[in-house]
Design a protein around this nucleic acid. Structure first.
Lengths: 364, 364
DNA sequence: TTGAAAGCGCTAACAC
DNA sequence: GTGTTAGCGCTTTCAA
């Protein structure tokens, strides 16, 4: 046995001093393990990192010593010294980690990062640009290997210096302004088109459209998809059947009432967002029209299948959004020189009943 | 100016070699900043860490140099050397970060950790005990300062060695088995009692109870709360009005049908979980009884207010759960010797209509 | 007020 | 196969 066994070791000293088992003891280091196993520190490193070229005998001794001491490799120290300087950590910045949509994105990121043993830091931006900057800096200080960002509406030129410093970045759900990079988006236009097409296929021609805040790019895209489908089918887009820039359940409810009272009366609705679907459904139920007038909504809604009829929707796939973003990020980390890509994630038309109501025989 | 300025510096060499501004350049270190500012490394450290005792002149020089180089303190290196060995990082382990309930907990944790500049690692357990063990080890390897865990149903004795090694741990939403520690729970029993009491206060005596999987402690607690309230009010607990161990919307729907067909017929329902509320509501709607029979559910449900009547619920406060867990964790990190505490988080009775339906005049 | 030297726990490079 | 030495980027200690 080498004299290593006699070397100074915090752990061995603690043990020898006879402290009870319940006493908190300091985390053992490789040195402690080496001392207990009677080998050099480097041999412990080799065993712990599964490097080849260590005899079975020593492997066993090291393993046993490590187990006995509850040794855990210190990844921060390991990463510091490692040649590639990687921390096996990425950062995820979204508007709110508690929002189910972003939580699903988070889960998708984890789906990809987890099997690679990459840790995920996450934080909420709250649509606050200062906070975004501070958090990007905090992540940079922790030397994350890359960042997935769902950017706020503000200017993002400040990210250039980080990206130039070699911090890979992928944008998800929204495009940033003032900077280019990998981008993962839901294909809003295409799926709004599909939803509208679905209603047209049931014979509807007078389709009411409810759209959200005009400031949002997604709202614009969804309106365009609606228009695309209507034009394709030679269906008229009547201004009296279009209500845009709605910002609440209440506004949507009122708008629906208005469209229902108008002429011609819509035989179907395409509601381009969560809250707007809720408002329209309320109005339809209030007038007992829910079984006569078709409705397809954008965004899935929990409880959609408790209603009668159950609500047909275009369900986005935020988890997939996260998965694709993570895949792009790891590709970029592996090769920083690839061209920035834009990737679209498909949504799903979920037919539950409300979207499959045909035009009533009596309808115009 | 000291000769430090002439010392080797990766950054300075790169710059001098005339590479273009868009070329990725390595992250500058304190040494690079020191060289550019013409001071010692230690002075840079002092300025960056806002330690007192640096002259205004040098502070300015260092600040400017750091800014010019886009210097970011390397926290991993900093933490490695620091005396307290803290990483300013905690780990959060829950069943699924994408589940809105746990996402809200996550957000609560971030509410507390964020202002302290503590990073949050999170990961999903998927009710898989092996995965839980691996993730705990991975977090230990990253030297998180503490862990917040919503434990799986399995045995948790294996955590003792980690806790003894000084890894602070707080349990949230569920109690672990085989180990003691700080614990944050929703007061299921108390709030089930309150829900039942609310129905009793409207004059209901024949209250149907729908309960979830018996294996879960929470289901048991909620049943007890129901019983507590009934006993207090001297209301009869009729076996024919109690259905427990329900595991799906469908089962709940069927159970509701059964209770409705029985004698006496319930004039109100307390449905002790999300999915069970959905099933009961479906059955009530199918029989057009939704306006005649009262219902209070445990757990909030999105879209609960689209229905007519809107659904009254006991809404848990998962975000608060996360906040309290984080508060306990930081308290324990600060002082590992405090006694383990159990903390209860209150839920809220949200009155939306369904729970406020009185006993019908014709009802028995 | 400033700086030089040592070392946190680990891995890279090289010797034996 | 195994061990020694240097050093990752930073803070600590102590000297000037």
């Amino acid at each position: 046995m080498s004299r290593g066994f006699l070397r100074y070791s915090r752990f061995v000293m603690t043990t020898l001093s006879g402290l009870s088992g319940m006493e908190p003891r300091p985390r053992p280091t490789m040195r402690d393990v080496a001392a207990l196993a009677g080998v050099s520190l480097k041999t412990v490193s080799r065993v712990v990192n599964r490097e080849p070229g260590v005899s079975g005998d020593l492997q066993g001794r090291v393993r046993r010593a490590a187990q006995q001491l509850d040794f855990r490799l210190n990844l921060t120290a390991s990463n510091l010294r490692r040649a590639d300087q990687r921390t096996a950590t990425i950062g995820l910045l979204v508007e709110d980690v508690g929002n189910p949509f972003f939580a699903a994105i988070h889960r998708g990121v984890e789906d990809i990062a987890g099997p690679l043993d990459v840790g995920v830091f996450s934080a909420s931006l709250e649509e606050d640009q200062d906070r975004e900057r501070r958090l990007i800096q905090a992540f940079a200080a922790r030397r994350v290997d890359g960042i997935i960002l769902s950017p706020t509406g503000a200017e993002h030129g400040y990210l250039l210096s980080e990206m130039r410093a070699g911090l890979p970045m992928v944008f998800v759900d929204r495009a940033p302004r003032g900077v280019e990079g990998d981008l993962v988006l839901t294909n809003n236009r295409e799926h709004a088109r599909a939803a509208t097409h679905h209603l047209l296929a049931s014979g509807h021609r007078h389709i009411g459209f409810l759209g959200g805040t005009l400031a949002l790019q997604t709202a614009e895209e969804r309106y365009r998809g609606f228009v695309d489908a209507m034009l394709e089918a030679d269906a008229p887009i009547l201004p009296s059947l279009v209500a845009r820039d709605l910002r609440s359940v209440h506004q949507a409810e009122a708008a629906t009432e208005l469209l229902l009272a108008g002429e011609p009366r819509p035989t179907a609705f395409f509601t381009a967002q969560n809250l707007l679907s809720t408002g329209a459904i309320r109005a339809l139920h209030a007038h007992q029209l829910q079984h006569d007038i078709a409705l397809v909504g954008f965004d899935d809604v929990e409880f959609a299948d408790v209603l009668s009829p159950a609500v047909s929707v275009i369900a986005q796939d935020p988890r997939r959004l996260g998965q694709v973003a993570a895949e792009l990020l790891f590709a970029r980390i592996a090769d920083p020189d690839i061209e920035p890509q834009v990737s679209f994630v498909n949504s799903q038309l979920v037919q539950r009943g409300s979207g499959e109501i045909p035009v009533r025989s009596g309808s115009r």
